[in-house]
Amino acid sequence: ELYARDPRNIVRVVLNRTAGDGAYDEAGATFRGWVAAGLLAPDDEPALYLVEQAFEVEGRPHERYGLLARFRVEDDARGRVLPHEHTRQAAKEDRYKLLKATRANFSPIFLMFSDRQGSFQKQAEATARTPPDFQYTDDGGVVHRVWRIRDGAAVSALQSAIGSEKAYIADGHHRWATAQRYHREVGPEAAWTLGYFTPMEAPGLVVLPYHRLLDRGPSIEEAGRALRAHFDLSDVKGAAAAAKKAAQSKAAYAFGLVDPSGAGLVAQARAGAGALLPADAPPSLRALDTFFLHQAVLSRLLNVPEDAVRYAHSMREVEEELKAGKCKLAVIMRPTPVAQIVDVADARASMPAKSTFFHPKLPSDLVVHPLHG
């Protein structure tokens, strides 16, 4: 659909449809053609870009501010840019080939930093009271407003506000690994990459859960019998009710299970359920619902193999899968708190796949960061 909308849509670069490795050559040629035609032009002076995203979650309005800026690429050993997820080789290879063909960043690495004094948030809100340089509303109803900041004093103030000793990768782990590899191979040209920086304390930083869809496994009744020894179980009707009750739970671990008929239950772990986890699991991982689910529940109690697990980030997708009978059970998860993400990153550990969904996603091509010229 995006291909058909406009021949200048960035999807023709970042997700080119040409078969095989020719896609990367075509992406590079397309990007260079747009630059040559003047469709993309460099700023005439250094600038930072403030981005506001206004959106709703379950009917409640939110606003998230972040800053688009380039930052230095460095090895993880420096401990200043901290990831929290495993990366997949196929995805890294795809991003590497695109970077090599275009020599530019189109999608920023999403980073969180500490803004305990609120200085960044105050500056962002003050800027947002002025007219933006441009704005638009995307297909999901998210309103994006962007300000180009060129005033030297304002730039310095924002740089100081995000000058934290550490930044935590929220999203973009494959892009970060790709930037590191390209820097090692190319050298100074690749010393910088594109980032989006937002405060971890901001109320607009919304983390949603990834739910699990089980293609094989027990029935809802069999699952209840398998879980009864370690969990308090409550019957619910439907995925929405399971999500609401699980979110309200104060238990160390809680999740819902729902089958295509709508029959469901919410499991809240009793004290001592953590003993089901491997003894050598680090504390930062032991605290996670997703780690507990995969290490203790799916593999040990329900005998569900990893290749039977799919993922859905929205309740609508879960409900559609259940209604169509495309899964045996849906596992309804709670969101992962930001503090747990930080703990995992500080411990240099890695969460299970699809543990976090930062909403809304960042669009590609709000700004382009060329690695040359």
Rank of each mutant, 00 (worst) to 15 (best):
D43K: 08
R150I: 01
W147F: 09
D115P: 10
F31C: 06
V207S: 11
D43H: 12
F197I: 00
R12S: 11
R17P: 13
P218Y: 02
E45W: 00
P199Y: 09
Q53F: 07
Y253K: 00
T130E: 14
P305D: 07
G195Y: 00
V236R: 00
H313P: 15
D346W: 06
H369E: 14
A177P: 06
I220N: 02
P209Y: 11
G238I: 05
A251Y: 02
A273K: 02
T87Q: 03
S261W: 02
V304I: 01
A240F: 07
A126R: 15
P282Q: 02
P352C: 10
G224A: 09
R181E: 08
A324F: 02
V35W: 04
T356S: 04
V266K: 00
A254Q: 01
P46S: 04
K361I: 14
M333D: 11
A247D: 11
S249G: 08
A170G: 07
A101E: 11
A104R: 06
D365N: 15
S160N: 13
H144L: 07
P260R: 03
L257F: 02
H62V: 10
G172N: 08
D280V: 05
M333K: 08
L40G: 04
H359N: 04
R300F: 05
A271K: 14
R216P: 13
S299A: 15
A170V: 03
A226Q: 10
H372M: 14
S114Q: 12
A287L: 08
S114Y: 08
A179W: 02
I109K: 01
T290G: 03
K244R: 15
L276F: 07
K361G: 14
L366G: 04
I109M: 04
S261V: 01
D139I: 14
A353W: 15
H62D: 12
R64P: 06
G118L: 06
E319C: 04
R78H: 13
G187F: 00
A345Q: 07
Y196L: 09
R95K: 10
Q89D: 14
D76R: 01
L158F: 03
S107H: 05
G256E: 07
A269W: 05
A124H: 00
S350P: 09
A36L: 02
F255M: 02
L322V: 01
A177E: 13
G79K: 11
V236D: 09
M112L: 13
E319S: 08
A153E: 15
G20N: 12
A275E: 15
S249Y: 07
L2W: 15
S299K: 14
E317T: 14
S364T: 13
C327I: 01
A251I: 03
T102A: 06
L208F: 08
T102N: 06
P188M: 01
D21N: 11
L158M: 04
D232S: 15
L298M: 08
P352E: 12
G141I: 07
H62K: 12
R145I: 01
F357I: 12
V344C: 03
D75N: 12
P218Q: 02
R12T: 11
A239M: 09
L285W: 07
A190L: 01
P108G: 04
A241K: 08
A275S: 12
V342G: 08
P199M: 05
F292R: 03
T336C: 05
A324Y: 04
A273L: 06
P132D: 07
